[in-house]
């Protein structure tokens, strides 16, 4: 009986203790939710997002100057820096340096984003230096550099000669929107020992024109790295159009799916000009090449035109043979759907 009373008392004591902690916690948290929300709504009404009052600016500068040791504290510093940069506060540039050097790449990235907000000459310099050092994700730095105006294209030239292939890669990639810059260097980079650099150079050349550019893209169709061949197929299609067709058609039989897919994309981009190049591929020894050619002929509308105009054509039958039953069924289905509206128009 005494034991039972003891258990009873123990449970009661524990329950009261838990209740004494939980009930005030629930009330306090509930009040925090409601008050926090009211405060947020009021601030939203009162203040324009990028505008800083002098007192707020001073508070943010103090916070940005601090040397917090905890992750939480570092993030508060980054948040302060972001607010200062967005408000174009004069103190922002000098305060960004420590955050850029932070060993945590996420914090360095946040600082990089703030540099993009500043967007002046100093910021470009720092961003390019960060791209070289790799202190933050390079794709993120590149995204910031690309949105800067005036366009910093010439600043990327030295990157093409960097010893680090990752830097050369980003140099070649970032020069894509500048067709007037670094023509020869870019062609030279298609022979770079690093396949990533070759891929980036070929991709950038795909947005340019000229015989030398075309020749460079064609040369890379036989690159040992499959992802270089992917970019080469697309680039050669863009630069040379149907003239590159016979060379690209070889890639329809490439062992890599991605390369075959890129070759198909290149032919789709050529539209109906690709038809004469693709027809001989329908009888290729490789089944991937055959069905790839049939698929492109379907996607550019050639199959549908034949199915409507000459449904008994032996050529259509050849395409169906190459593409298989799925392609035949889909084409016949589409033709059936289109025929009534066509007949109605004719009537």
């Amino acid at each position: 009986m005494d034991d039972q009373r003891g258990v009873d008392a123990l449970v009661l004591r524990v329950a009261i203790l838990v209740l004494a902690l939980a009930l005030p916690a629930w009330i306090a948290l509930s009040v925090a939710v409601v008050l926090g929300r009211l405060r947020y709504d009021r601030r939203l009404r009162d203040v324009r997002v990028d505008e800083l009052r002098p007192r707020e600016s001073a508070r943010l500068i103090r916070r940005a100057r601090g040397r917090p040791r905890t992750e939480w504290g570092r993030w508060r510093r980054v948040a302060a820096l972001t607010r200062l940069a967005r408000a174009h506060d004069l103190a922002a540039p000098s305060l960004l340096h420590p955050a850029l050097a932070d060993p945590d790449p996420r914090i360095a990235t946040a600082a990089i984003r703030s540099l993009g907000d500043l967007g002046d000459e100093w910021a470009i310099e720092i961003l390019v230096a960060a791209l070289r050092s790799g202190s933050a994700p390079r794709s993120r730095i590149a995204a910031e550099l690309e949105r800067l105006a005036p366009a910093p294209g010439l600043r990327f030239m030295p990157l093409l000669r960097d010893r680090d292939p990752a830097v050369r890669f980003w140099g070649a990639t970032l020069l894509c929107p500048y067709p007037e810059i670094a023509h020869e260097n870019m062609i030279a980079l298609t022979w770079d020992p690093d396949p990533n650099v070759r891929a980036a150079a070929v991709e950038t050349l795909g947005t340019r024109s000229g015989d030398a550019v075309g020749a460079a893209t064609l040369a890379r169709l036989d690159d040992p790295a499959w992802f270089v061949r992917v970019h080469a197929a697309r680039a050669a299609g863009h630069v040379l159009g149907v003239a590159a067709g016979p060379a690209i058609s070889r890639l329809l039989a490439d062992p890599q799916w991605w390369v075959r897919s890129a070759a198909k994309d290149a032919f789709r981009g050529m539209g109906s000009d690709a038809v004469p190049v693709l027809l001989p591929v329908l009888t290729h020894a490789d089944p991937f090449a055959r069905n790839g050619a049939a698929e492109v002929l379907q996607d550019i509308g050639f199959v549908d035109a034949l199915a409507l105009e000459q449904p008994e054509s032996p050529l259509l039958e050849r395409i169906y043979e190459a593409g298989g039953e799925g392609l035949r069924d889909a084409a016949e289905h589409r033709a059936e759907e289109r025929r009534p509206s066509r007949n109605a128009r004719a009537a």
């Binding site: 992750e71 939480w72 993030w75 508060r76 980054v78 948040a79 820096l81 972001t82 996420r106 946040a110 984003r113 703030s114 993009g116 907000d117 794709s139 993120r140 590149a142 995204a143 910031e144 690309e146 949105r147």
Partner: peptide, 20 residues
Amino acid sequence: GVRRHETSSEDYRVLASSRF
């Protein structure tokens, strides 16, 4: 809290328009 700070310093317009 960390994610909130991250989000507030993020510029989604850059991500939404970047080819990277």
